[in-house]
Design a binder for these strands. Structure first.
Lengths: 137, 137
DNA sequence: ATGACTAATTGCAAAATGCAACCACTTTTT
DNA sequence: AAAAAGTGGTTGCATTTTGCAATTAGTCAT
């Protein structure tokens, strides 16, 4: 049995994503199509490589992502979302909606986010299906 | 102009809530009806008083909560959610849904969370109205 | 075989967090 | 009126996390 601060839903989520980077990584895999360490390292927010290493291991441990060898490149790892990771989509969409309403979001640069928030549950379900196709199997 | 890591919606939200405590405080104000420093200090997760002081100031600076003198008690401050704070409700509900599905949530102790997730947009709107009544004006 | 690319690792400084004690003031109790 | 309990904090110090730059061992294309 693991040791939790509490078994409140909000707290349990925070124990995994209560930092400045973990959800950024999920965002990049989910919306930017990034699948490799080097790609993730080049996030807009410039994550450091040691933090990226640490968070990828944590997210794998938590069952949010999975890691596999790239077939064509022995040293390359390819990262995928698990079902648990894909289920973060509605949370991220709500976060997007809140930020667009209350924060200085760059609407041109992040038009896809605006579209996703405005697209409602239908668009969200399409994205979800595509993620399942790409990441699960 | 403030200095942001990026103007991505996910990042802007994380710059405020990317820690283990800020959303816990909002949760307690929103769902536990806590309005005073001492009440918030007694969270299930046992936040330290210096962290609470720091986060309350930050949340006020960010316009998520507001602080006012208690009429009947000269030394007491009463904390309220702003509209921006109340707008976090859908995010927290989605977080609740995710945790209930994927994490060892204590369903008995947090039955209200389960109800809220299952209650859909209708119940969520009722709660929203009550929050507006209690916190704004 | 060399030069670029891969996923990290290391070492060190800075910042955030955790913990316990303390504080000045206000309200309640006796 | 004095004592006790409650208020929103502050302070000091140890631990943990993060940020940054340099480095590394293995792999790949030429």
């Amino acid at each position: 049995m693991e040791n939790h601060r509490s078994n409140c839903p909000v707290n349990l989520m925070l124990e995994v994503f209560g930092d400045k980077w973990s959800l950024i990584i999920v965002r990049d895999i989910m919306f930017e199509g990034k699948r490799y360490f080097r790609e993730l390292l080049n996030s807009e927010e410039k994550i450091a490589s040691n933090i990226l290493t640490d968070r990828l291991a944590m997210l794998e441990r938590e069952g949010i992502i999975s890691k596999a060898d790239d077939p064509g490149h022995k040293q390359k790892n390819i990262y995928s979302l698990t079902a648990k990771g894909i289920d973060l989509l509605p949370i991220i969409v709500e976060i997007g909606g809140w930020s667009i309403k209350h924060k200085p979001v760059n609407m041109k640069k992040h038009k896809h986010a605006v579209d996703l928030v405005r697209g409602g549950k239908e668009l969200q379900n399409e994205i979800r299906k595509e993620l399942i196709k790409k990441h699960l199997k």
